[in-house]
């Protein structure tokens, strides 16, 4: 399974990076979502997968005995998902505001940076 998931993750990375290379900010944001998913799956895969067996201790027991899925990457991913989501929302609002100002989401419209170095 790791083999196939690794290929999928690579594919997701490729798709995400491809989106980043497009001239549209919304597509860039979309690419970042894809990259977020790719990263989460990477973390999920990385320390070995376990079918079934969620890391929940059965009621009344003191400890969980193997086999069970590694809870550590899950905790990492949960944290990462939330962080990604928060920052993505911020980015989208920025895109939204910038588009209101410029009327487009094309990155080529974002060139006021050059204003003074042309002189």
């Amino acid at each position: 399974m790791e083999l196939f998931l690794a290929i999928t993750v690579g594919g997701l990375f490729a798709a995400g990076f491809y989106c980043l290379m497009l001239h549209s900010i919304v597509r860039i944001a979309l690419g970042l979502v894809l990259l977020g998913s790719a990263t989460n799956l990477l973390i999920f895969t990385i320390n070995g997968l376990q079918r079934g067996f969620a890391p929940l201790v059965p009621e009344g027991q003191e400890a969980l005995s193997p086999p069970f899925a590694d809870p550590v990457p899950q905790a990492f991913i949960l944290t990462a998902i939330v962080i990604n989501f928060g920052l993505l929302a911020l980015l989208l609002v920025l895109v939204h505001r910038a588009a209101q100002e410029t009327g487009t989401d094309d990155t080529r419209a974002l060139r006021t940076e050059l204003k003074d170095s042309k002189q």
Binding site: V26, A29, L30, V33, N40, F44, L49, Q50, R51, G52, F53, A54, P55, L56, F68, A69, Q74, I77, L78, I81, V82, F85, L88, A89, L92, V93, V95, H96, A99, Q100, G103, T104, D105
Partner: peptide
């Protein structure tokens, strides 16, 4: 692969993401 918390959060977050995108796309 044994991550129900993750699945739950993923669904909620992805839904919200899609809504956000839709809102932004619908704006201009």
């Amino acid at each position: 692969f044994g991550a129900p918390d993750l699945a739950m959060t993923q669904i909620v977050v992805q839904t919200l993401t899609v809504i956000l995108f839709a809102l932004v796309f619908s704006r201009f």
